[in-house]
Design a protein around this nucleic acid. Structure first.
Lengths: 249, 249
DNA sequence: TAAATAGTGTCTATAAGACATTATCTC
DNA sequence: GAGATAATGTCTTATAGACACTATTTA
């Protein structure tokens, strides 16, 4: 939600100085927004990547992203960073940004990270529920877009410093997994406890004891975060109870 | 530490496109670095602020900060974000950035946050040990620099969105207090357990049971994070044992 | 000696890890 | 019925909060 811009009291002198302000007196960097879009499909944590067809790093995989729209003056200052990230996400996936978790990671701005010119990127992390993945319509041609398994990405496979960004993003999600609701952005609208456990195991890369995980899960039910959903999930063995995230989704 | 820039394989065609690249084909935002410099003095969490003498927000308190130095071309791309923050910190305090904790918070880039033009700022948090505070030599005139108590800052007292940035920074430090070493950046090189507890209480704003705090503290001694230092701290009552952070400081 | 507070110990509740056991389905 | 795994339960250990108590100094 964009808030109302800060509005200083502009007296006459301020207005004058404001008019004299020359933004182009010093060089400015380009500012981009790159989005690390994660999902969990086929028992893998995956990132949405786009193959570059322009230099630099032509042919390499890169994060979807683009430059932040900046307006022409004090009146129109362009779009918020969050809006730029949401736009990038929607353009690249065709999904509604409101149906995905989206949060800022941090800025990456090392000099030389883009060989052309100074580019500072504000990285975002998005989580797409796996049941929405089939609905993803890549913005450009589908041939150049892929969900790559994070575990299979080498540092040299990605353009720029994108491998580093993906790794920082992965660690952020791992850290948030236990004490926030992000895990529910990586399972379908209805899910079983073993399915949720599987997501935890895939993201953290470590096995979780089924009994202990279930105990933690039951605390969430008592707290009203989760509720039972109708039906049972048919598996190869004993069917599992189906739950859903209790807050509106 | 600046790392070596990513180096793509530049073939002839890439070099050509790189040369044709026109960075000024679209408007760019200004990019600044603002540093939230915290310390704990006189039983208060305090922020180093600078009084603005130019519009906008003339006369209001603002975070020390400045624009990121951006070079002129692909060769010289200017300074890293971390370096810009360290430079800003050193300029404003006269302290060596290596003697303070310094970490990136996140980017703040709402359209309209600066009434002049689009400015995206990368916010950093720094922690200055209270025993170094007397050594702080404000970069400009000392009259315009002050350590203000965070608790006494109203949202309207600060320029731009700096009150929001300070609040996000404070929450970051609170979150890091228990499971990182940041607390030791807010006490002198040697300290007593009650002194460290006091810092926790001041930063979190909540009282801590002396016995329970001491117990947690003793685990750090067993882990070798902290060690006893010579001497005793003379107080109004029973003198307290003095400790120091075990890693090199 | 009184006041203050550094420092110790205890009881309880909660949560996590390891692991055994039962229940219920599909094939 | 066999195999699989969902679901439950138990034991142990670690940690946090509340709080009573002791120790040692200054004034």
């Amino acid at each position: 939600m964009p808030r109302a811009p800060a509005k200083p009291d502009l007296d006459a002198e301020e207005a004058e100085l404001l008019a004299r302000y020359r933004p182009s007196d010093f060089p400015r960097p380009s500012v981009a927004v790159d989005v690390v879009i994660f999902t969990v499909v086929d028992a893998e944590l995956r990132v949405l990547l786009v193959r570059r067809r322009e230099p630099p790093f032509r042919g390499r995989w890169a994060l979807p992203g683009g430059f932040v729209r900046v307006g022409e003056g004090p009146r129109d200052q362009g779009e918020d960073l969050d809006a730029a990230a949401a736009r990038e996400l929607e353009e690249e996936t065709g999904l509604d940004a409101r149906s995905t978790h989206l949060e800022q990671l941090r800025a990456f701005g090392r000099a030389g990270r883009d060989p052309r010119t100074r580019v500072i990127t504000i990285a975002y992390v998005a989580l797409v529920r796996p049941d929405l993945v089939p609905r993803v319509r890549p913005g450009g041609d589908a041939d150049r877009t892929a969900w790559l398994a994070v575990s299979g990405i080498g540092r040299a496979d990605l353009a720029f410093d994108h491998a580093e960004i993906v790794e920082v993003a992965r660690r952020r999600i791992v850290a948030r997994l236990d004490d926030s609701d992000v895990a529910f952005s990586l399972v379908p609208a209805t899910f079983t406890i073993p399915e949720l456990r599987s997501v935890h195991e895939i993201v953290t890369g470590a096995p979780h004891d089924p009994g202990n995980f279930r105990r933690k899960f039951h605390r969430l039910i008592e707290l009203g975060v989760i509720e039972q959903a109708p039906g049972k999930r048919i598996t190869a063995s004993k069917p599992a109870t189906v739950y859903r995230f209790a807050r509106s989704r």
